[in-house]
Design a protein around this nucleic acid. Structure first.
Lengths: 192, 192
DNA sequence: TTGATAAACGGAGGAACCCTCCGTATAAAT
DNA sequence: ATTTATACGGAGGGTTCCTCCGTTTATCAA
C-alpha cells in the first residue's frame, strides 16, 4: 500500500529542496544580527533567490522563524549526540552547555526571538523543550552512569537553570558571566 | 541673574506646545493597540499633524516612546495624589493598584513596551521606578499611619510584587487573575 | 498696531519593505 | 523527446520610514 494519500505524488524537485536550505541558512544569519523583525527581502537576497520563492516556502514571517528555530534546536541535539561519544562525560556536558551560551551570545537577535517564542506558538515551545531535554538527558545520564555526578537532578531542571541564566543576564557583556555560572553549576553537580 | 543661557530666548510657541500634547495623546492610543513598533505616520494622522511635525518633536521612535511612557507614569502619580485625599486609606491603595492593572490591560502594547524599557534606557527605568515608588509610598504611609496595615513592607517591595504579577501572567485573559492577586495581596497587608 | 523674523508647520519625495500575482523556466514522469 | 506538475523570479501596488524645504504663523520690538 505504501502511501495513503489520494494520488501518487511526484518526488519533490531538487531545486526546491536546495532553495529551502539556502533560505534557512540565510535567515539564520539575518535574524542573528537583525532580530526577528529583520527584512525578509534581505533574507531572500542573502540566499540568492527571489522574494517570491521565500514566500512560497514560508508563507509568513512566523513560519520562517519557526523553521529557523527548529533548525537551531536540531543542531544542538546533533551536537549532543556527537559529544556523547567523548570519554570525559562531565566535560562533554560542560561543552554542550557552553555551546548553548555561545549560540545565544553570537546570535543576539535570538534573545528577542526567544521572547517571541515564549509568547508564541505552543507547538514550537513544546518541540524545543522536548528535544533539548532529550539532549541534556543524553549527556547527563552518562555522567551519572559513570558515577561522576549526583543523580537527583532531572534534565528538565538543568535546562530550566540554563534558561534562567540566559534571562537573568540582560546586559551587553553577559557572556563571560553566563559561562562562569554554567561552570559553577556543573561543578556543583560533581560528586566529590 | 535669572537665565544663564547666552541670549534671552523667545517664549515657546503655543502651537508647538499644543501639538506636542496632541502627539503624545495620539501615540498613547496608537501604541496601546499596535505595540511599540506601530506606524509613526499613523500617530501623526491620529494627532492631526504632519509627519514632519512628529519628527521635529520626537526625532526617533525611541524618543517618542520614552515621552509616552513618562507621561503615563506621571498620570499614575497624579492619580495617587488624588487618591491620597480619600478617607478609606486601604481602599485608596487598592484602587491605585487596580488602576495599574487596568492600564496595562487596556494598553496591551505596553507589555511588549515594558520589555523594551527593561532593556532600554537606564534613565527611563530609573525615572519610572523612582516616581512610582514615591506614589506607592504616598498611599502606603497613610494606611500605616492609620494603623490599618502592617508596617514592615517597603514601597519598593510592593511595587516589585506588582510588576511580578504583570510578568507572570502572560495569557490573554490575565486581567481578572491579576486583580484577584492584587486583592489578596492587599488583604495580606491588612492588620486584623 | 504693525512689521520683522525666528520658529514651527505640512507634506512631497526617494528609499526600503511587505506581500501577491503570474508569465517563464525546469525537473520529474512517461 | 515530450508532457506537465512545480517551482522560480521579480514587477507592481501599497505602506512606512525619514529628510528636506517652501510656506505659514506666533512672538517680539518699534
Amino acid at each position: 500500500m505504501g502511501n495513503a494519500t489520494v494520488k501518487t505524488r511526484r518526488k519533490p524537485r531538487a531545486d526546491s529542496l536546495r532553495n529551502r536550505e539556502l533560505l534557512l541558512d540565510a535567515a539564520t544569519r539575518i535574524f542573528s544580527v537583525g532580530g526577528p523583525q529583520a527584512s525578509l527581502e534581505a533574507v531572500a537576497r542573502q540566499a540568492g533567490v527571489g522574494i517570491g520563492t521565500l514566500y512560497r516556502h514560508f508563507p509568513t514571517r512566523e513560519a520562517l522563524f519557526d523553521a529557523v528555530y527548529r533548525h537551531e534546536v536540531d543542531h544542538l541535539v546533533e551536537l549532543a549526540e556527537k559529544l556523547a561519544g567523548e570519554a570525559d562525560t562531565v566535560e562533554a556536558l560542560r561543552k554542550w552547555l557552553h555551546a548553548n551560551v555561545r549560540l545565544v551570545a553570537t546570535k543576539k537577535g535570538m534573545i528577542g526571538a526567544l521572547q517571541l517564542v515564549a509568547h508564541g506558538s505552543p507547538d514550537l515551545k513544546a518541540y524545543s523543550l522536548e528535544r533539548l531535554t532529550g539532549a541534556v538527558r543524553l549527556l547527563l545520564d552518562r555522567t551519572i552512569a559513570a558515577g561522576k555526578t549526583r543523580s537527583d537532578i532531572p534534565p528538565e531542571d538543568l535546562l530550566r537553570t540554563l534558561i534562567g541564566i540566559f534571562y537573568s543576564q540582560s546586559t551587553d557583556d553577559w557572556q563571560p558571566t553566563a559561562l562562569r555560572l554554567v561552570d559553577i553549576f556543573v561543578d556543583g553537580l560533581r560528586k566529590r
